[in-house]
Design a protein around this nucleic acid. Structure first.
Length: 682
DNA sequence: TGGGCCACTTAGTACGCTCCCA
DNA sequence: TGGGAGCGTACTAAGTGGCCCA
């Protein structure tokens, strides 16, 4: 079995400094992954092709599988979301109604008891929280749109554009070939983008410099173009110093000045940061247009350094209601288009010039439109819970299929389920960094060991995943999987696809047949959430006080400490390398005594400094972790873990929700906080 | 079936603010 | 008072997956 050094080398790149850390996170996930389904009880062997109303769970309900009903949003006709009010029940099955009534009463009781508790616990904060709750719109208690309609009325003020370019003061000069040179405003602006990044290592990278220079030249006048032919002869240091000065000045501003800026931001937020969607004022996530600058993709991106151009009103498509007050373009300009498409959720869009993809202005996660989708995502995952045993049995069976296509599909699903791999859509070569997911794995990304460190049938994964984060994992797999992998790899080159008869489209089509709404990413949500629920059950000690419950160390603690130690070791090696580089550069500079080598020394010195800082951080982290036994959840907490699990846990053990969710998270998960009772089961 | 387009979710990074400690 | 850690947030890149059309 071959290994491509091309890819291996990437990992040594200093740019991947932070990635090992993430790799460990991934590895951590994988480890859970391998345990996810051991000991999983069969919750519902029967497979029901139910109709559903998209939102399966009535608020405040206890989930009893037989009683749940689901149907695809696509199929949904006159749908109502269940609510505990007494009206509005026309289309609900009886069972839900009674359940809801019970629950509604129960909730009232609990509210009462909570009130008394609150009084005891938090005399201060109570009023504020209560008031907040009263003002908040409970969209999850209302009817839901059907047939792809996302809203009936939408009004907003349009985007906020990036401030126009302010030319440099005349005393700040750009030098070409040692001589000062006044640039045209267009060329100067792009030059400032580069100058602001001078401290970053990527301004030393060939691709970055090449792409930048090419795009910069496009902005130059013909005279400038004729003169400026070599980036190496460009001196941006004065400009760079100027911007550093500005940022220092900003930091040194008085309280009043800072307050003034804050107020201005707040004003802008109030004016542009909200829209009216169906009678409710909803927060917009990103109402500012992305400012121009130099593109920096993640990992080894072929387009790094390219100019991200300034977006103008004539690039902007506005989406709003016909009968709303349309946003005005800035004086003397026009929008590209104003449309009224209520089958989509975005307010503003434009096409970006690096990849030609479309960018959007959309609503905040606290909005109805995002919340409903989020809720629905977890409902889909809960439906997977009911048929995951059947699906697992199916793909295990398919490992034996006569058809190669079916076998590949089955092994891929196994990876997605067991290791939480992403689907792995195809990517256009040369357009983005070379990263892969499950379906796009190549032969060079895995190694097979019939026996390794006392384990049989071990597969070693080593590839760059999303955001060019390295995934490295050695896992023992079932014999059949192993044999299949051997078969898939037969007579292939390292850069051939491992699953040559498979792509995400085929895979998802199959998954869709297994369960309505099932796609590869549902496994991540399902496995993360079910693991959280299990672990909370397993690890919560009734007798412990609140702080102890919150800090309960996961079983994986030892392993994660080992990972951290590995990172520290790697960082130490990196530091040693960087120091050696610096030494070499110093020696060069001593001999040559020119500006260029001096600069190189500076860059190397900074690199050493940076790595030292990183090492220090990691060491501190190790201490912290040892002492606090804490594990960061971050992304999972926001995207993969059904918030109702955590909310129920808090309610069950009397833990204030503020201990686990900050303000923003509480806003995002308001639906879950309101509806999940202490007996909620994922 | 495959490619392109589009809409949307998931993700890391940078930066600013707050709080705490010396 | 300054500085650093940690947290929260803004920003925007990079994924997923559905749909449409040839």
């Amino acid at each position: 079995i071959h290994y491509s050094h091309k890819h291996k080398d990437k990992y040594k790149d200093k740019e991947h400094k932070h990635k090992d850390h993430k790799k460990d996170k991934e590895r951590e996930k994988s480890k859970h992954g391998s345990r996810y389904w051991m000991g999983m009880k069969s919750l519902d062997g029967k497979v029901k092709k139910e109709k559903e109303n998209g939102f399966a769970s009535p608020p405040h309900m206890k989930i009893e599988p037989e009683e749940d009903f689901y149907h695809s949003p696509k199929l949904a006709k006159s749908l109502k979301r269940e609510r505990d009010d007494d009206n509005d029940l026309d289309f609900k099955p009886k069972k839900i109604k009674t359940e809801n009534d019970k629950k509604a009463k129960k909730r009232k009781q609990e509210d009462e008891s909570k009130k008394t508790k609150d009084k005891k616990a938090e005399v201060t904060g109570k009023k504020k929280v209560k008031k907040e709750a009263e003002e908040k719109w409970k969209w999850w208690e209302e009817e839901r749109y059907t047939d792809g309609v996302k809203w009936k009325f939408l009004e907003h003020k349009g985007p906020v554009f990036a401030p126009p370019y302010e030319p440099l003061p005349s005393n700040v000069k750009f030098y070409y070939d040692g001589k000062p040179m006044k640039l045209s405003p267009e060329a100067e602006e792009v030059a400032t983008f580069f100058s602001k990044m001078l401290d970053h290592e990527y301004t030393t990278k060939d691709i970055f410099r090449k792409n930048f220079f090419k795009d910069w030249r496009k902005e130059m006048t013909s005279e400038e173009k004729a003169k400026i032919t070599d980036l190496k002869k460009c001196n941006f240091t004065e400009m760079s110093e100027y911007f550093k000065g500005l940022s220092e000045a900003r930091k040194a501003m008085t309280k009043e000045q800072k307050l003034k800026i804050k107020e201005e931001n707040e004003r802008l937020l109030q004016e542009y940061g909200f829209c009216i969607m169906d009678n409710h004022r909803e927060r917009i996530a990103n109402f500012r247009i992305e400012p121009p600058g130099l593109f920096r993709g993640r990992g080894d991106h072929p387009k790094m350094g390219m100019l991200k151009r300034r977006i103008r009103p004539q690039d902007i498509i506005i989406n709003c209601s016909k009968n709303s007050k349309h946003p005005e373009p800035p004086p003397g300009t026009k929008w590209k288009e104003v449309r009224h498409d209520n089958k989509v959720t975005w307010l503003v869009s434009w096409t970006e010039n690096i990849q030609g993809s479309i960018k959007y202005i959309m609503l905040n996660p606290s909005s109805r439109i995002k919340g409903e989708k989020d809720w629905q995502k977890y409902e889909t995952a809960r439906r997977l819970k009911k048929c995951v045993d059947r699906i697992r049995a199916q793909y295990r069976e398919d490992w034996k299929s006569k058809e190669m296509r079916v076998r590949q599909r089955a092994v891929a699903i196994y990876f997605i389920d067991k290791l939480a791999l992403r689907a792995g859509n195809e990517k256009e070569e040369g357009e983005t960094a070379d990263t892969v997911g499950c379906c796009s794995l190549r032969v060079e990304h895995i190694k097979l060991y019939p026996e390794n460190e006392g384990q049989e049938y071990v597969v070693e994964f080593d590839f760059l995943g999303k955001d060019s984060i390295r995934y490295y994992n050695k896992v023992p797999v079932e014999k059949r999987v192993f044999k299949n992998l051997q078969l898939f790899m037969e007579n292939k080159e390292p850069d051939d696809d491992l699953f040559d008869r498979l792509n995400t489209s085929v895979l998802n089509k199959h998954l869709q047949e297994l369960m309505d709404g099932l796609s590869a990413k549902v496994f991540r949500t399902y496995n993360a959430s079910i693991t959280l629920q299990q672990q909370l059950k397993e690890l919560t000690n009734e007798d412990e006080n609140i702080p102890a419950k919150i800090l309960a160390p996961p079983k994986t603690f030892e392993k994660s400490m080992q990972n951290l130690q590995a990172k520290i070791d790697a960082k130490r090696d990196q530091l040693a390398n960087a120091k050696r580089d610096l030494k070499a550069a110093k020696a060069d500079a001593k001999g040559l005594r020119d500006d260029k080598s001096k600069k190189t020394v500076e860059t190397k010195r900074k690199a050493v400094q940076r790595i030292e800082e990183q090492l220090m951080k990691l060491e501190v982290q190790a201490t912290d972790r040892e002492e606090n036994k804490q594990i960061a959840l971050g992304t999972s907490k926001l995207n993969y873990l059904d918030p109702r699990i955590s909310v129920a846990w808090c309610k069950k053990w009397g833990i204030p929700i503020e201990k686990i969710y900050n303000k923003t998270q509480r806003e995002k998960f308001a639906w879950a906080i309101d509806m999940a009772e202490k007996d909620f089961e994922f």
